[in-house]
Amino acid sequence: MNETISTILKRGSLRKYDEKDISKEDLDLILKSAMRAPTAGNMMCYSVIVVKNKEIKEKLSISCDNQPFIKTAPVLLVFLADLNKWYKYYEYNNTKSFMEEKGEYFEGPTEANLMLATQDAIIAAENVVIAAESLGIGSCYIGDIMEKFEYHKELLNLPKYVYPITMLTLGYYPKGYSVPLRDRFNEEYIIFEEEYKEFSEVDIKKMFKERDRLFVTKNKYNANNYAQYHFNMKVKSEFSKEMTRSVKLALDEWNGNKI
């Protein structure tokens, strides 16, 4: 097994960090790794905000579902789907008037563009995760940055056609500390050959057998099994509703309307 594969297979989400700052050399390497990530059409439709300010980290730890460990990370990286720069490039080079001369209209980015920009941002983020891990720097993905659209827009000074897709916490491992790896579903339920495989009830019950062991009879939802508990914890949760609201606001902005 080579070093890269070993790094990937041992990596888990780190939520406890050594107090020392991430060195400039290590952070520079991590960010260079982000920028070498694959990108649709070589457009690099993403941006990364490096957050070290204690006050901003504190605010993000609260706005991202009240997770105190976020503010203890030496560095936060916010990954943005970003077409603002490309649209400024179009504007400064008279693209709108050019399209009008052709008898066509100039339109804003579409939902499909948001999906592609999201792919760019997430691929860059995963490059960061692996590069950081190889340097002894742990990380944790924070999807809650997609929530509170208006608040994060103001806090991070985000213009039109820019949306926060994910955030990473970064910090060195505490001495002698390692992350216990969580179980994954068996490969047969995730990796398919040639086409999608739809599962029977028997298959699904086998797939979720270990998850069902997590069920606690006495629970706040009065659920009868883990599926019912999980649905209420995730799908019907307040954070899920807020994330849905915020994503819809982003989609309203990235709607391909005539400009």
Rank of each mutant, 00 (worst) to 15 (best):
D144V: 08
D26A: 09
K20Y: 04
M43P: 00
S240F: 08
F231N: 14
I30V: 11
V179C: 06
E194G: 06
V78D: 04
A121R: 00
V216N: 07
K88L: 07
N232R: 14
N93M: 05
Y229E: 07
K24D: 15
P38H: 10
Y196P: 09
L83Y: 10
L168H: 06
S237G: 14
N113D: 15
E195R: 06
F149K: 00
K54A: 14
T72A: 10
I190F: 03
Y105S: 15
Y161I: 02
S63D: 13
K205G: 02
I259N: 09
A125Y: 14
D26F: 00
D65M: 05
P159H: 03
N42E: 06
Q67H: 02
A227D: 09
G171M: 01
L60C: 05
K54F: 03
E210Q: 12
V179D: 04
Y161P: 03
K258T: 14
N66M: 08
E58P: 00
V247R: 03
D120P: 09
R15D: 01
A112K: 13
Y161S: 07
T7I: 02
L170D: 06
T39F: 12
K57Y: 11
A131G: 09
F69T: 03
I22A: 06
I123N: 08
K57C: 07
F231M: 11
K206T: 11
A132W: 01
L249G: 01
E154F: 01
C140Y: 12
G103R: 08
P74R: 04
L214I: 04
S13R: 02
R36N: 13
T39C: 13
K258M: 09
K197C: 10
I122Q: 04
N222D: 15
E198C: 10
I204Y: 13
L9Q: 12
E210K: 15
K218S: 15
A250N: 06
D28C: 06
E3N: 12
K59I: 13
D82Y: 05
E58T: 10
S246W: 08
P74A: 02
L135F: 07
N225M: 11
A132G: 03
E242M: 03
R11C: 09
K197P: 14
S23F: 08
Y172M: 08
A117N: 00
M207E: 12
L251N: 02
Y196N: 13
N255C: 15
D120H: 04
K20D: 00
K209G: 04
P38Q: 04
K218Y: 13
P68Q: 07
N257D: 15
W86D: 04
A250W: 01
F149L: 00
E210M: 06
L60S: 06
D65V: 08
I70P: 10
I130W: 08
N93A: 09
R211D: 13
K236S: 12
M99A: 12
P38I: 02
I62P: 00
R15N: 01
E193R: 03
E100R: 06
N42W: 09
L31K: 10
D252P: 14
F185K: 13
I190Q: 07
K24Y: 07
K32N: 11
E242P: 01
A40D: 14
N127A: 05
K96Y: 11
L9P: 09
S97L: 08
E101C: 09
I62C: 04
R184A: 04
E194P: 11
K59V: 11
E195N: 07
N53P: 00
I191T: 04
D65P: 00
